[in-house]
Amino acid sequence: MFQRCLICTDFSDGLYRLTDFVANLAAGGVRQVVFLHCVPIWDEGEVPRIDQEKIDTAKERFSNALKDVPEGIEVCVEVPSGRPTDAIPEVLKKYDSDVVLTGMPIRSLLQEKIFGSTSLALAKCTSTPIMMLRPQLVSTYTREELALRCEHLWRYLLIPYNDGSSARYLLEQFKEYVQKRPDNSLKQCMLLWVIDEARRKEIPSEYRVKEAQKKLESVKSELEGLGLEVNAEVREGNPFMEIIDVAVEYDISAIATSYVTKGKLLDWTAPSFANEVLRRSWFPVLFFSPKQ
């Protein structure tokens, strides 16, 4: 689905392991891989300065990525000094990357408030899609499992859809990238409309299901017109739980989600479906950030 990939790692999230799997990323359609690690400014003493020793150490850890690079793929390493939220947008612009891979541990809302998150902060300052992987999983995959994961990162996407503004924005962004996808990348997607059982009980369930099915069939036809194999389903229940059940049942590669605008509405402490997926899902999450 994407061809130019920026992989950001702090060396504690497991993503540095991907330096050994460049060939597998290429098999999934990636043509350029940039590995990025940000070294904090050394602030011991009176004058802050660049910590060259840590920069050299980081570059050495990336050395495997530069060995035996497959033909037709470009691999680069960037080890800037400073904060990730400052460096990542600059590197994105330099290489024109079309997706960012980051690690994001599962945390409660309270933990997020206390510790913060580079991934969530990044979503506020860039419109580039962000693929968030759970360090707990990436670190424990065997080499064989990780090789397959790298090949199938975007093979089968789950797209939650309810015809709301965020869902329509997600669909339009998804369609844009689908039309530019490599031949050996995205193959199929799953459209899922979950009717929240806790809402709008005054409307008969049969009517809501029928209305959702009709709208979902229209979206399905649009995506099939782009050469995708598309499954579509309407379910009733808790949106998050139903989406996770479907992701397991249909062997989904990643769950796509989005917000519709930046500013106050991009508030990670506010209750929303996207927040719940980002914080709780063990599945990789492909987040389409609102346009600048």
Rank of each mutant, 00 (worst) to 15 (best):
P129E: 01
S108N: 08
E206I: 14
P160C: 08
E53I: 01
S127V: 12
N162F: 05
L223H: 04
L191A: 01
A27S: 13
S281G: 08
G227Q: 00
V260L: 14
E144C: 02
A167H: 00
A121E: 11
Y250T: 15
L226E: 10
I114H: 08
S281M: 04
A121F: 03
P271T: 14
V277H: 08
A270W: 03
N24L: 06
P84F: 02
S185Y: 01
P105E: 15
E217Q: 07
S221C: 10
V77A: 13
M190V: 10
N238L: 14
R61E: 11
V39Y: 06
G103Q: 05
S119K: 05
T142I: 04
D96T: 04
P129Q: 02
E172Y: 06
D196P: 06
A256P: 00
L120E: 07
L122W: 01
E217H: 07
K113A: 12
L216C: 10
P89W: 11
L223R: 09
D163Q: 09
T126E: 12
C150G: 01
Q3Y: 04
A212W: 07
R200S: 07
Y16M: 03
L186W: 00
T57E: 10
W282R: 13
S127K: 15
G164A: 09
A27E: 13
P182A: 14
G103L: 07
R134P: 05
F287M: 15
Q52M: 06
R279L: 11
T128E: 14
V277I: 13
F283M: 06
V33D: 00
L170A: 08
N238E: 13
L158I: 10
A254C: 11
G72V: 03
V34E: 00
W282S: 09
L133C: 01
R155K: 09
I244T: 09
Q213R: 11
C8N: 06
I50E: 07
M1R: 01
D56H: 04
E276Q: 15
K264E: 11
M131I: 10
D98L: 04
R235A: 11
K180D: 08
V91A: 09
T118G: 02
N64E: 04
I7L: 06
L92F: 05
E276V: 11
V277F: 08
Q179M: 12
K59P: 05
I88W: 03
P290K: 14
S205N: 10
K180R: 08
K201E: 09
I252K: 02
R280M: 15
K220D: 00
L133S: 00
Q136E: 12
R235L: 09
D98K: 05
E176N: 11
N24Q: 11
